[in-house]
Nucleic acid binder design. Structure first.
Length: 174
DNA sequence: TAAGTGCGTCGTT
DNA sequence: AACGACGCACTTA
């Protein structure tokens, strides 16, 4: 039977079983390039079961599974597979790099992220870039709040953001 | 105070 | 040209 698992862009998709449901990890030849929340998977996705997956990707996937497990439990992530963030613009990649630096249990406001980038006025653009994050949870965009510890938004749904932050011990206002 | 309105500013579509 | 996962200043009640 023909293996239709390879996406049109040369992307392989592998499921990740967690206590919160089945995530879907995307891999390009360069690394992890996407992560879907359980309820976000569109029926058109074909997942792969082994044969044509390179040992390299299998290795990355092991790291993804472990990292996701830790992260969902509110624990610090030790190791991530290489990330392929080439889908993003320069600006977005700069934002995502800042997000990666936010430790578990810590948060930054959109404005503070903009500060890190050297342009406080870019706040709104930062919000947009957060929403474009292709690897939620592992690139912790949920740790970016609005000012005054307000929840802000979340592309995966605010319930997820609240849940993730609660597990990391972050207190919200409102 | 708390809640609501207006607007600057930046990257993206 | 229009739109946000914003943040402030500034009304109102």
């Amino acid at each position: 039977m023909k293996n239709t698992a390879e996406g049109k862009n040369g992307v392989w998709k592998l499921p990740v079983q967690t206590t919160d449901g089945e995530f879907l990890a995307h891999y390009s030849v360069n690394g992890l390039c996407g992560l879907d929340f359980p309820y976000k998977q569109d029926p058109g996705n074909h997942t792969v079961n082994g044969a044509r997956i390179s040992s390299e990707i299998r290795e990355w996937h092991k790291q993804t599974v472990k990292a996701l497990e830790s992260s969902l439990a509110g624990r610090m992530v030790n190791e991530l597979p290489p990330l392929d963030l080439s889908c993003g613009t320069d600006f977005q990649q700069r934002v995502w790099r800042v997000l990666k630096s936010i430790a578990c249990g810590k948060t930054l406001s959109y404005g503070e992220v903009a500060d890190e980038l050297g342009d406080r006025k870019a706040v709104r653009a930062v919000g947009r870039a957060c929403g474009a994050n292709p690897i939620p949870v592992l690139i912790p965009c949920h740790r970016v709040l609005a000012s005054k510890q307000k929840i802000g938004g979340f592309s995966g749904g605010l319930d997820w953001k609240r849940k993730l932050l609660a597990r990391e011990g972050v207190l919200l206002l409102e």
